[in-house]
Design a protein around this nucleic acid. Structure first.
Lengths: 203, 203
DNA sequence: GTCTATAATTAGATAGAC
DNA sequence: GTCTATCTAATTATAGAC
């Protein structure tokens, strides 16, 4: 999607229309403005995200640290899979979050804050349960999102650099394995096979 | 810097000139074009980065895994400090790496590839030494950069969301501690105090 | 609703006085 | 080198025929 690949300003409504096999003025007919189209796209992508990750687990819902860790690992894995399938969402986030704009405020207050609060609360409980790496709960959200999504956000660069297609199913799953192992070192479930040093096609 | 905060297209030469207390046509006088200004800015930022992180360590330079791990941890810590001090570089990277453009090719071939190759080689040795988390070497670069830099790349969002100033010295160091603990679980040096679950000012 | 034509604004770049 | 004025091209949005 143009907004993700180029950012709001660089994404021309002409290019967006062409990508949808439509004419540029149709955007202003079906939406109020380029801004309104952007809001609709963001709303839609966050709906898909919430649907994909489901409820964020809380410690009280699980009998022991092992089961709690498995639930948290599942959430992380679903987030990695979503980031691979819909890179546009995290691309839009990094395009918008580098500057204090009206669009940033909208996206933060409408969509990110509830998610941020859920992740922060989860992380505090994971730390107490001895499952999580010692990362400040107030910023764990950024470490998780950054590590999990950058290979997909920057997929055009990754393809150039690495010779790997980051969205290949097997690579996505191994990436999720690595994220879970690094961020939840206290969890050693069947979810996370802890592979030995892997070989890959790279220089 | 405008290129980092807004991206190439959204950064107007008028705004850039105003930020430098100059007039817009002076950009075309002192540089050839907006493109040339961008290249000069990117070249300068990567020079600063290379200077800041120094040589990337190799296993053969160290007597044992403990010292090799300490060297790698130092490199990670210097990268985190640089990302906090100069968010523009990683902001420019995420703005450009979401689309396959001439600017992306320039930045990759001129600056990123040598760094990527050094990080990939380092990571393979860290895995062999049992120091690193089980992350695919071909993509370790993205996990490191994503986790280490997103709080600074998205600092405007982080300030809104968290009530934390991510560039505060103490927080930068704790962030580096967390990154090192998560990515180098086999290393337990004095570099990394492994603090107990930390308390912070957040909701 | 679709499509053409175009209005209104803004961008990067240039000319030329000083 | 600095600064004003302006050119050309591209943008979003709108008007109106069909």
């Amino acid at each position: 999607m143009e907004f993700g690949a180029k950012g709001f300003e660089a994404a021309s409504t002409r290019a967006i229309a062409e990508g949808a096999d439509a004419y540029q003025p149709q955007i202003n007919y079906h939406f109020e403005s380029k801004d309104a189209l952007w809001v609709a796209a963001v709303d839609h992508l966050f709906e898909l995200l919430m649907e994909a990750i489901g409820e964020v687990p809380r410690a009280e819902g699980y009998a022991d640290a092992e089961h709690f860790g498995a639930a948290a690992a599942g959430t992380l894995r679903r987030f990695v899979r979503f980031a691979a399938a819909h890179p546009e969402l995290n691309q839009i986030m990094v395009h918008e979050a580098t500057d204090d704009s009206a669009r940033l405020h909208l996206i933060v207050e409408r969509h990110v804050r509830p998610l941020y609060q859920a992740i922060t609360a989860l992380w505090k409980e994971l730390l107490q349960a001895g499952l999580a790496a010692p990362i400040d709960p107030s910023m764990a959200h950024y470490v998780i999102v950054g590590a999990a999504s950058l290979p997909f956000v920057n997929a055009p660069e990754a393809r150039l650099l690495t010779g790997v297609e980051p969205t290949d199913r097997a690579w996505v799953e191994r990436h999720a394995d690595g994220i879970i192992a690094a961020l939840l070192p206290g969890y050693r479930g069947s979810d996370q096979p802890r592979p030995a040093a892997t070989n890959t096609t790279s220089a």
